[in-house]
Design a binder for these strands. Structure first.
Lengths: 254, 254
DNA sequence: ATAAGGGTTCAGTATTGCGGAACGACTATT
DNA sequence: AATAGTCGTTCCGCAATACTGAACCCTTAT
């Protein structure tokens, strides 16, 4: 599947190690980052000064930070997606209509990446951010996608990433997951019962193209104490599935 | 000002050259990108396979593309700014209220970077995207920032980037720009009369912190044939400046 | 079948990234 | 005011590794 690079460019890897370090530390000086990454500070300095010169990082009074220029790559990649432009307004509407947090996710390299988040003043605050990656087996959004992927792709993804336990509720057994995916196919939507974040429940529906390819999934999430009863088993699922339908319809006319 | 790197990491630079190439070509194969960049294809292959392995690019049936994972860096950098979270809702409101395109810009490395765009169904479509970089002297947003920067910073920025002519209306003379900035300080807002995009006019107001530092600027843009008369000289400026005021007020309470 | 085109691999060469140590700028401490 | 500590920056020799052209393999078209 993922052919390992034969002539890997080590410095390219290191470049992103440095950037990731900056992100984790929320900005850092040379020495701080060097100890964090366990790399000589002269090495870190070389990378940081190069990246600063190329304007990918900013030096703000002694601290290096990731530059906003990266927004360009993100926006470019996102707009290239089939679903983003079409799904965005519906995801926003879903958040406003239900008063909850809504999300749009796509699969990339066997993991889920959030493309957009619909917000509402009544919704709970969650730390997921656009671009964040999650495992597919531990979220409703991911399971909705897995349920619509060919079996061999699902196998390959599970082989690659395993089924890490994110919370006590995460499904970590392949057979159990298979049964779950079966149920999702029949129901048409996926459930996440605190499998990714404790105290958070989530309902998700897949976006499937006219040619039966999953393009992504959308969801509505909320606190467990609010997501229960028919609100959780009917009202929210209906809203999410209806939104997914609208998106699928709009996709065919474009 | 910008200390040139003494030990530049060439491969770090090349990494972004490759990524930029992918962006320009909207995705490409190894050979295509190699000829575009005028680099041996084995070299390009090394970079692309490494980046793919690290999950920064995606290989989609023979074509390499920039991955959506970059959204993470962009969102991180943006949320780190002082203005984004506070200004975003106001910029959205500004777009809806006036039925035009609105924007939020900050300065980085002497250039402007768009952080957010407020849209409205009635607004014209413009190709600016979040993360896009523009010169500060050729946009209302940029001039609003320049007018609130210390003179020596303005000088340094102009020394570094010059005053390239983006459209026939772009100000390319330093004295003329100085006079313009003077006027902006008095008026409180900046005007862009087709200086960045032909057929497009724009009104912008700076966002200034309590300690008199410019944090960015917001704007409303529209077609020249609609942006004229008192609508252009009063209505829109009033709306933009009021929004800037609200943002500045909210900034102090946080 | 065969040619064409693109992706991938290989291995030799010298470029260049690496990292320890020294230097300089700045701050805090007494 | 002197000094110790901290951090960013620079320097330079050595070894690692990025670069490249050519060969190889695979798929597609004719």
């Amino acid at each position: 599947m993922a052919g390992t690079a034969r002539n890997p460019v080590k410095s390219a890897r290191t470049t992103f190690t440095v950037l990731d370090g900056l992100k984790e530390l929320n900005g850092a000086g040379v020495t701080e980052l060097a100890t964090h990454l366990d790399v000589p500070k002269s090495t870190v300095h070389s990378y940081l000064s190069t990246l600063e010169e190329e304007e990918w990082v900013v030096k703000d009074d002694g601290e290096y930070h990731i530059g906003v220029r990266f927004l360009e790559y993100g926006a470019h990649a996102r707009s290239r997606t089939d679903v983003y432009e079409i799904a965005k307004p519906e995801v926003d509407r879903l958040a406003k209509d239900t008063g909850n947090l809504s999300n749009l996710l796509i699969e990339e390299h066997g993991r889920g990446v959030y493309l957009h988040r619909g917000e509402d003043s009544r919704a709970i605050q969650v730390n997921t951010r656009v671009g964040t990656r999650v495992y597919l087996h531990s979220t409703a959004l991911g399971k909705a996608i897995l349920a619509n992927l060919p079996d061999r792709r699902v196998e390959a993804i599970l082989d690659r990433h395993g089924l890490p336990e994110v919370t006590p509720n995460t499904i970590t057994d392949r057979a159990e997951l298979a049964a779950e995916l079966e149920g999702i196919s029949e129901r048409g939507y996926a459930i996440d019962d605190e499998e990714q974040v404790q105290g958070l429940r989530c309902i998700s529906a897949p976006i499937v193209s006219a040619s039966d390819r999953v393009l992504g999934s959308i969801s509505v999430s909320g606190p467990t104490h609010r997501f229960k009863g028919t609100y959780f088993t009917e009202t929210i699922p209906d809203s999410v599935m209806e939104a997914a339908n609208v998106i699928e319809l709009n996709l065919t006319y474009s």
